[in-house]
Structure formats: structure tokens, C-alpha cells
Simulated assay, not measured.
Amino acid sequence: MKPNRVLQFIALGIGFAFLYIPILSLIVYSFNDSQLVTVWTHFSTRWYQALATDDELITAAWLSLRIALMTAFASVIIGTWAGFVLARMGRFRGFTLYTGMINAPLVIPEVIQGISLLLLFVEMGKLFGWPAGRGVFTIWIGHVMLCISYVAIIVQSRVRELNPSLEEAALDLGATPFKVFFQITLPLISQALAAGWLLSFTLSIDDLVLSAFLSGPGSTTLPLVVFSRVRLGLNPEMNALATLFILVVTAGVIVGNYFMQRAERKRMAMAV
């Protein structure tokens, strides 16, 4: 084996070890009976049992899950239209401003976004009486604002790779632009939509900064609960919670990849 090849494998192995050894150690110590996170005593599932009876964590987890699902669907719907406009509508009047507004959440720190949205909601509450307070709705708006940009960039890059002759052929055969978009374009960019959905879901369920600014009484998300507890010291119950999330995310990625690969194989078979 060539020396360069060996160095590549070594670098790859170090990179994977750096990424995945902490995750594996977290999973292993979630089955530790000791209250000390880094001291192994013997195998036990006591922290999973404690997690099952922790009402605060369970309530926060369900709230974060609901917000993440709503954010993912809304971001894909709005971000798809935004990305399609960027890719297909050309340089119209105000195109530079439109592009800058779409890309702004990617470069503006979340702290600035959180402060600006908080001030906006406070002033709207004073002027219009809406929103009456901060909660699920305000958190959802903040997360959608953040995730739309990611979806738009993904969809834009995918739409630009499409062969326009397919859509032009459908138009020549009498299909309306609306019908072409839903029956031709959307199936061709389905993988990009799935990727944008998964990314939006992950960003939302993991967000701490925006949620801290936009949450109110009774709307504490899971990252806020975890952060408040970790500040007081590591708890093996957090390891159990993280392990469950890793399993759920891994299963979701596997299922998502399966459907995307099946759709790609079907598309290639139809093209042949």
C-alpha cells in the first residue's frame, strides 16, 4: 500500500475516532449504575427508569418534538418556493435584496436574531395586543425563520441541476406551469426536500439560543431544560436521554436514506 494511502486511512481513522468515541462512551455510560458519570460500577438501566418518570424532561421533549415537526414542514413549504424563485426566475427587480434576505439568517448570529425577534414581539404586543405572550408560536416563528434559508439553498442547488427539457416537454404537451411544478419538478427534487426537512427538524429540536429568547412560561423546550440541569453538574439521566435521541435520529436517517435511494433508483430506471 502506498504511503499516501496509509496516511489517508490514518487521518480518516483519527477523524472518525474523534467524532464517534465520545458518542459511544456516552451510550455505554448511560447503562452505568453509578451516579458519577465517569465512574463505571456495573450494568444497570436505572437511569432509563428515572427518565421515564421525569415529567419535566418528557414534557419538554414532546414540546420540542412538536415544534420541530411544525418547523420542518413549514420550512420545506416556504423554502421550496424561495429556492425555486432563486433558481428559475432570473434576475428580477429586487433580486439582490431578495437573495440577501434569504441568506441573512445564515450569517447573522442567532443571538442577534433572538434579540430582534424578541423586540419585535414585545412591540407588536404593545401596539396590537398580539402575541399576548411568548410561547410555542413565537418559538416556531423563530425556528422557521432560521431554517427557511437552509432549505432554500438546498432546493436552489438541486433545481439548477435539473434538465429543463423535461418541464418544457410537459408544457408543450399542454400542462399548466402549476401542474408541471407539482407533477414534474417536485418529484425530481424530492431528495432535496427530504434533506431540507431533516436538516430543519434537527436545527429546530437542537436550538437553544432562539428558544431562550422566544420561550415563555409553560413553553420550555428540551435544550433549555438540559442546559439548565447541566450547569449544575452532569447527570447520568442526561446520558440516557441522549442515547434515546441518538437511536431515534439514526433510525430516521436510515429510513430517510432508504426512501431517497429507492426514489433515485426508480428515477434512473424511468430515465433508461
Rank of each mutant, 00 (worst) to 15 (best):
G256M: 11
S75H: 08
S204V: 02
T202R: 04
R46S: 11
L222V: 08
G135I: 05
W62H: 11
E123V: 14
W62T: 15
S204Y: 13
M1I: 14
N103C: 09
V226T: 11
P164G: 09
I102M: 02
M238R: 04
R134S: 08
A132F: 11
T138I: 14
A240W: 02
I153P: 11
P22M: 07
N239F: 15
V225W: 07
Q113S: 11
N32M: 03
E264V: 13
A212F: 12
T243K: 09
A87P: 01
T220R: 15
D33P: 01
G79F: 12
E237V: 15
T71I: 04
T176V: 02
K179Q: 14
I23H: 07
W140L: 13
L119P: 00
A175W: 06
Q49F: 04
Y48M: 02
M238W: 05
P131D: 10
T243E: 08
R229P: 01
T243S: 15
A11C: 07
V39M: 15
A11M: 12
M89L: 09
A175Y: 00
L118H: 11
G15F: 13
A271C: 07
F181Q: 00
D206H: 08
V155E: 06
L162A: 04
A169H: 03
I14A: 13
N235S: 13
L186N: 06
A240P: 12
W130V: 13
P3K: 14
N32T: 00
V111Q: 04
T250I: 14
D207R: 05
G142E: 07
I184A: 08
V111L: 14
D55E: 12
P164R: 14
F182Q: 01
F213H: 06
A68C: 10
Q261Y: 00
V225D: 03
G114H: 09
I10R: 00
R160G: 06
W40C: 13
F178G: 13
L244P: 03
G256L: 11
F84S: 00
D206Q: 06
W130T: 12
A52V: 02
N32G: 02
I141K: 10
F31Y: 15
F16P: 01
L24P: 03
E123K: 05
A194R: 04
G133C: 11
A68D: 02
F137K: 14
G15R: 03
P217T: 04
L171I: 03
V6T: 14
I14V: 13
L57Q: 05
A263K: 15
D54E: 12
G233W: 05
R265N: 07
K2T: 15
A194E: 02
V28C: 09
L120H: 08
A72C: 08
R262T: 02
A170M: 09
G233N: 06
F95V: 15
L26E: 00
L86Q: 07
S200G: 08
T59L: 12
F182G: 05
V248D: 01
F73K: 00
